[in-house]
Amino acid sequence: QVATSTVRILGMTCQSCVKSIEDRISNLKGIISMKVSLEQGSATVKYVPSVVCLQQVCHQIGDMGFEASIAE
């Protein structure tokens, strides 16, 4: 089973930030795809909930120095 959710990301300033986040999160087990939008300050994450949760994704992004939260 696959889920798609949006994560809000604060602190991104350039495409390099976007690429860094996409590269790191895409390597997590259970992540199918991730598309980060600098303009919208968010990311669309396609993932397998039984393998990885959005809290883990937000935590990983937080470790990179950005502020991440699950969009309502």
Results as ranks from 00 to 15, higher is better:
Met64Tyr: 00
Ser26Phe: 05
Leu10Met: 13
Met34Gln: 00
Val7Leu: 15
Gly11Glu: 04
Ser33Tyr: 09
Thr4Glu: 14
Thr44Arg: 12
Gln1Leu: 04
Val48Met: 15
Ile70Tyr: 15
Gln40Cys: 15
Tyr47Asn: 01
Ile21Phe: 03
Ser37Pro: 01
Gln56Leu: 10
Leu38Thr: 01
Leu10Phe: 12
Thr4Ala: 05
Cys14His: 03
Gln55Tyr: 13
Asp63Arg: 11
Ala71Gly: 09
Val18Lys: 08
Ser42Asn: 11
Leu28Ile: 12
Asp23Gly: 07
Gln56Thr: 14
Ser26Asn: 13
Ala71Tyr: 09
Lys29Tyr: 14
Val36Arg: 00
Gln60Phe: 13
Gly65Asp: 02
Cys58Thr: 11
Val45Ile: 12
Ala68Asn: 03
Asn27Thr: 11
Gln60Tyr: 14
Met12Thr: 04
Lys35Thr: 09
Ala71Gln: 13
Ser16Trp: 06
Cys58Pro: 04
Ser5Asp: 12
Val48Leu: 13
Lys29Cys: 09
Gln55Ile: 11
Cys53Glu: 10
Gly30Arg: 04
Val48Ser: 14
Ala68Tyr: 05
Met34Asn: 00
Tyr47Trp: 08
Ser16Pro: 04
Gly11Phe: 05
Ser33Thr: 06
Pro49Thr: 07
Cys17Asp: 15
Gly62Met: 14
Ser16Leu: 10
Ala71Thr: 11
Gly65Ala: 03
Cys58His: 06
Glu67Arg: 12
Leu54His: 02
Ser26Pro: 02
Cys58Ala: 11
Ile21Asp: 01
Thr44Cys: 11
Gly62Leu: 13
Ile70Asp: 04
Ile31Asp: 00
Ala43Val: 06
Ser33Gln: 09
Val52Trp: 02
Ser69Thr: 12
Gln40Met: 12
Val2Leu: 06
Arg24Gly: 09
Val2Ile: 10
Ser42Tyr: 10
Gln40Ser: 11
Leu10Pro: 05
Ile70Cys: 14
Val57Asp: 02
Ser69Val: 11
Ile32Val: 10
Thr13Ser: 10
Ser69Ile: 13
Asp23Met: 10
Glu22Met: 09
Leu28Tyr: 04
Thr6Val: 14
Leu28Met: 13
Ala68Trp: 07
Thr13Cys: 07
Val18Met: 04
Leu38Tyr: 09
Gly11Gln: 03
Leu28Ala: 04
Ile31Gly: 00
Ser37Trp: 08
Gln1Val: 08
Ile32Ala: 00
Glu39Pro: 08
Gly41Met: 11
Pro49Phe: 08
Ile9Arg: 00
Glu67Phe: 13
Val7Tyr: 00
Val57Gln: 02
Ser20Thr: 13
Asn27Gln: 14
Ala3Tyr: 15
Lys35Arg: 10
Ala71Ser: 12
Ser26Leu: 09
Ala43Cys: 06
Gly41His: 13
Met64His: 02
Lys35Gln: 10
Ser5Ala: 14
